[in-house]
């Protein structure tokens, strides 16, 4: 393995980690504050991507598509909240899992009906096209770097929002003890709406940013949803800091594992066996990581509620 490959894969891992963080942040906030498992969060990511593609087909501009995508993703999220999720906050987790599973089935299929099953693509904006040289004549696409930077920017913004503002304080308090927050006279429903809308926008943003580098297709959110759940469980549910760290760890472990597992397996196994074991081990790595973390810390790395 060369250092160039290692550098590229590390950047790719960071990029996956950032995407995961954008999805996991909304998921962990919604779960932490509202005690609501939203499986349909991955669908929000998919909707963001599709709506941006639709916006691009309409306007021909990536930036306008970004704005249209974000606005419409937020709108869809709020409609879903109004129609379905609002009725689930008081239910047990099982009901929430099932009803939001129903939302996934519906929206995946609806997207297929409207845009077809074939993958679509969203071209990267001219401004961020092309590649720039990094260390020892390594070329890396500007767009991917921009994705990492914008993701880090969102993470910083989120950090400031959660730790330095009044709404952030309420969110943290709500994650620790929602009943007490409600008893102190905070309109918890409105807080829910704000948190939910914000989480939806983050997932939509992740989808739009991912659209130029991944294919836009029905069900694209499903696998990322599972990864995002792994992230929030490893990080400790309700903890933004935990989600950020866990997202980067999971992103790096998954990406580096996929590129180097076969080589590493070859150190211990004959080549033919290593070619079999490597990819499987790479796919399993994050789940092994999660099982190990939960074995030693059953409430994740940064537990919020001491229940």
């Amino acid at each position: 393995m060369s250092t160039t490959l290692l550098a590229v894969q590390t950047l790719n891992g960071l990029q996956l980690g950032i995407l995961l963080f954008l999805i996991a942040a909304g998921l962990t906030l919604v779960f932490g504050v509202m005690d609501f498992i939203n499986l349909a969060h991955g669908v929000q990511y998919m909707l963001g991507a599709y709506l941006a593609v639709a916006g691009y087909q309409l306007t021909g501009s990536f930036w306008l598509a970004l704005i249209i995508g974000l606005a419409l993703a937020l709108f869809c999220g709020l409609v879903l909240e109004f129609l379905v999720f609002r009725r689930l906050y008081d239910r047990d987790h099982l009901d929430q899992v099932l009803a939001t599973f129903g939302v996934i089935l519906f929206l995946n299929e609806a997207v297929k009906v409207i845009w077809g099953a074939a993958p679509l693509s969203l071209p990267a904006p001219n401004l961020l096209d092309g590649a720039i040289p990094l260390v020892n004549n390594l070329q890396y696409p500007v767009y991917r770097l921009a994705l990492i930077v914008s993701g880090l920017g969102v993470a910083a913004l989120l950090y400031v929002l959660v730790t330095r503002t009044r709404v952030g304080m309420l969110v943290r308090a709500g994650a620790t003890n929602p009943d007490m927050v409600a008893a102190l006279g905070v309109n918890i429903r409105r807080l829910f709406m704000i948190v939910f809308g914000f989480g939806t926008m983050l997932a939509g943003f992740a989808g739009i940013m991912a659209a130029p580098i991944l294919s836009v297709e029905p069900g694209m959110g499903d696998n990322l949803l599972i990864l995002a759940f792994v992230v929030i469980v490893v990080g400790g549910i309700g903890s933004i800091r935990g989600a950020f760290l866990a997202a980067l760890i999971i992103g790096l472990v998954d990406t580096l594992g996929r590129s180097f597992a076969t080589d590493i397996a070859k150190l211990a196994l004959p080549p033919a066996a290593a070619n079999d074991v490597g990819p499987a081990l790479a796919s399993m790595l994050i789940y092994i990581l999660m099982a190990a973390v939960l074995f030693f810390r059953p409430s994740g790395l940064f537990p919020v509620r001491s229940a």
């Binding site: 987790h93 079999d276 990819p279 796919s283 099982a291 939960l294 074995f295 059953p298």
Partner: peptide, 29 residues
């Protein structure tokens, strides 16, 4: 291992073991 955890953590860790079994069989060339 799973029963050391509760609630959502249990849901996710059983999912993790399910996925491990899934990927093991995909590697049985």
């Amino acid at each position: 291992i799973s029963l050391r955890t509760r609630g959502v953590y249990f849901i996710m860790i059983t999912l993790a073991f399910g996925q491990m079994a899934y990927y093991t069989t995909t590697s049985l060339s």
